[in-house]
C-alpha cells in the first residue's frame, strides 16, 4: 500500500570510497546547519509581541448585561446542556423586589461557574444561549498556580457595568438575524409553535 509517493525502498549497498572517507558527508551536514544561521526565527516573544488573532477568536467567556446594566442570564441551563466538555455549572435564584435593576428576568443565575481547565472553547454555549447572555471574547485566559483559580465564577465572568466587553465581532448582524429567524425550530417559543399549528 502506498500512502504517499515519497516512500523509498531500503537498500544496504556497499559504501563507495568517497562515502567511506566520511568527511565530505560531515562537511555537507555542517554547511546545512551553517545555512540556518542566516534564516529568520519564527519565534514570537509572547508577552511583548502578540500574534494576530482571528476576528472570531474564541477566548475567555463574558456574561453580558443589557443596555440598562441588568444581567441577561436567566439560568435556563441550555449552555450547560450544550457544553460537550461539561464545564458549566449554575444555580438559579429568584429575583426579589428591588433587584429589577440587577437582573433582567425573574429568574437569574445565583452561581455561574465555568471550569476553564475543562472548557474546550468550542463556542456551543454561545450558540445555545437564547438570551444573548454568554459570549466568547478575544481575551486569553490567564494561567494560574492552582486548579481552583481556573474555575471562574460570576466575579470574573460578568462584565462590569462601567467596563463593557465588546462582542460586536462575534455578534454580527448575520448572527442576530439567524438567532431571531422563526423558521428555525429552536428559535420558536412555545406560543409560536402553537400558532403555527
Amino acid at each position: 500500500m502506498m500512502l504517499t509517493n515519497r516512500s523509498k525502498q531500503v537498500v544496504q549497498k556497499e559504501l563507495t570510497l568517497a562515502e567511506q572517507l566520511y568527511f565530505p558527508a560531515i562537511l555537507k551536514g555542517m554547511l546545512i546547519t551553517l545555512s540556518h544561521i542566516f534564516r529568520k526565527t519564527p519565534t514570537v516573544r509572547y508577552p511583548e509581541q502578540k500574534r494576530e488573532i482571528a476576528p472570531v477568536y474564541r477566548g475567555q467567556h463574558v456574561l453580558k448585561r443589557d443596555e440598562a446594566g441588568a444581567e441577561r442570564c436567566t439560568a435556563c441551563g441550555l449552555c450547560a446542556v450544550a457544553c460537550p466538555a461539561e464545564a458549566i455549572t449554575m444555580e438559579a435564584g429568584e429575583r426579589k423586589k428591588g433587584e429589577e435593576g440587577l437582573y433582567r428576568e425573574e429568574k437569574y443565575a445565583a452561581v455561574y461557574e465555568i471550569n476553564m481547565l475543562r472548557c474546550i472553547f468550542c463556542g456551543l454555549c454561545e450558540e445555545a444561549c437564547p438570551k444573548e447572555a454568554i459570549f466568547l471574547t478575544d481575551r486569553i485566559v490567564p494561567s494560574s498556580f492552582t486548579r481552583g483559580e481556573e474555575i471562574f465564577g460570576k466575579d470574573k465572568l460578568v462584565e462590569p457595568a462601567d467596563q463593557r466587553v465588546d462582542v460586536s465581532k462575534r455578534q454580527t448582524k448575520a448572527v442576530l438575524d439567524f438567532k431571531q429567524d422563526k423558521r428555525h425550530y429552536h428559535n420558536q417559543t412555545h406560543s409560536d409553535r402553537l400558532l403555527s399549528r
Partner: peptide
C-alpha cells in the same frame, strides 16, 4: 544551538 535550529535561545 538556538540560532542553528531557528530558535531565539536565552534572551
Amino acid at each position: 544551538a538556538a540560532i542553528l535550529q531557528d530558535r531565539v535561545g536565552p534572551d
